[in-house]
């Protein structure tokens, strides 16, 4: 039964990707990207990767198509071009590469086998000992925020850097090198009454849910990455319905930009505290005499840093793109 669901989802993914190859319009492609993200999130659930599915549902089906939409809106949909000559070279190249890769997969361990090399090195240790060493049920969170916390610090830094890069790239002259949106009070778009009323009811719960995901990430699927994206999507929803000037008054761009740095700093400082005590970087046993309690505090701080950075960076990126869209509008 599980195999059937798995195969059907994979075939749907292939069909969506095929449609993306055929479809020419950018708007239709964006919508198909959203479908693709939702399908892959469902696939991750059948593969037991609930944390990953959570992230992919928020990012792949939500934020990523939204940014694509804003880009398409800013640059214009463009003239649909007639299909050119069949790219024979590309087809040959892709076929050969694909065939080689498929031959390569034949050497891989069969799907789902428990004695595959991937499952025999560190994974058993994580699964058997993390209950005692870290003391929280969600092994993904233990590995993310404790065993491989240094790796995660790198990822958070990449996200932060990407946010800074977007701000620098989209900066317009006269804004002192930042793509921060300018306040233009009085420029109200057409009101969407029903959407605005419903979103007013829902946004508080979306933000509350983000906090739940943030702080419940030790016990169930969730954590800083998912919570950050959900929190940002709440802000983005508000911005979409009430316009960029309004959301900029509620959540000031300068504050969000600062918070993006604060999250990374919180993460790094958590690691440095251990060094001040003469322990290795990111050794959480510095926080409490009981090592398990120390792990709890450390993971909470680190995940909070991740959540703040991810939420701020996504909001900053949305502001920069929405600003481009408003400038393109006039």
């Amino acid at each position: 039964m599980e195999l059937l669901v798995n195969s059907v989802l994979l075939m749907l993914l292939v069909a969506t990707a095929g449609a993306l190859v055929v479809v020419r319009g950018l708007l239709a492609s964006t919508m198909l990207t959203s479908v693709y993200g939702l399908l892959s999130a469902s696939f991750f659930v059948t593969m037991d990767a609930v944390d990953v599915a959570f992230t992919e549902a928020a990012v792949g089906a939500g934020v990523s198509p939204l940014l694509l939409l804003l880009t398409v809106a800013a640059i214009g949909r463009g003239e649909p071009r007639a299909a050119g000559a069949l790219p024979i070279l590309a087809i040959v190249l892709v076929t050969i590469t694909g065939a080689l890769l498929i031959i390569g997969t034949l050497d891989m361990p069969p799907f789902g086998s428990a004695d595959a090399p991937a499952h025999t090195h560190v994974a058993p240790r994580y699964l058997q000992l993390s209950g005692e060493e870290i003391g929280i049920p969600n092994v993904v969170t233990s590995v993310l925020a404790s065993y491989r916390a240094f790796d995660t610090l790198g990822e958070v830094l990449v996200i932060f850097t990407a946010g800074v890069a977007v701000l620098l790239i989209l900066a317009t002259p006269g804004q002192r090198g930042s793509a921060r949106p300018r306040y233009t009070p009085g420029s109200h778009s057409e009101p969407h009454t029903i959407l605005q009323v419903v979103s007013k009811i829902l946004i508080p719960f979306i933000l509350l849910f983000a906090l739940y995901v943030q702080f419940h990430g030790e016990y169930g699927p969730g954590g800083g990455f998912q919570a950050g994206v959900i929190f940002a999507s709440g802000i983005i929803l508000y911005g979409l319905l009430y316009g960029l000037p309004t959301v900029c008054r509620v959540v000031r761009p300068a504050v969000v930009e600062t918070l993006a740095a604060v999250g990374v700093l919180l993460y790094g400082t958590t690691g440095l505290l251990a060094m001040l005590d003469g322990r290795p970087f990111l050794d959480y046993s510095v926080f409490a005499a009981n090592p398990v309690l120390g792990q709890h505090i450390g993971i909470l701080l680190v995940e909070l840093g991740v959540g703040i950075t991810v939420a701020s960076v996504i909001t900053v990126i949305y502001y920069a793109f929405a600003n481009q869209f408003e400038m393109a509008e006039g």
Binding site: D51, V52, T55, E56, V59, G60, V63, S64, L67, V140, L144, D151, T152, E155, V158, I159, A162, G163, G223, F225, G228, V229, V310, V313, I314, I317
Partner: peptide, 9 residues
């Protein structure tokens, strides 16, 4: 999980 968020960034 981290790669997805890095990917969108």
């Amino acid at each position: 999980l981290t790669a997805i968020v890095v990917g969108i960034a």
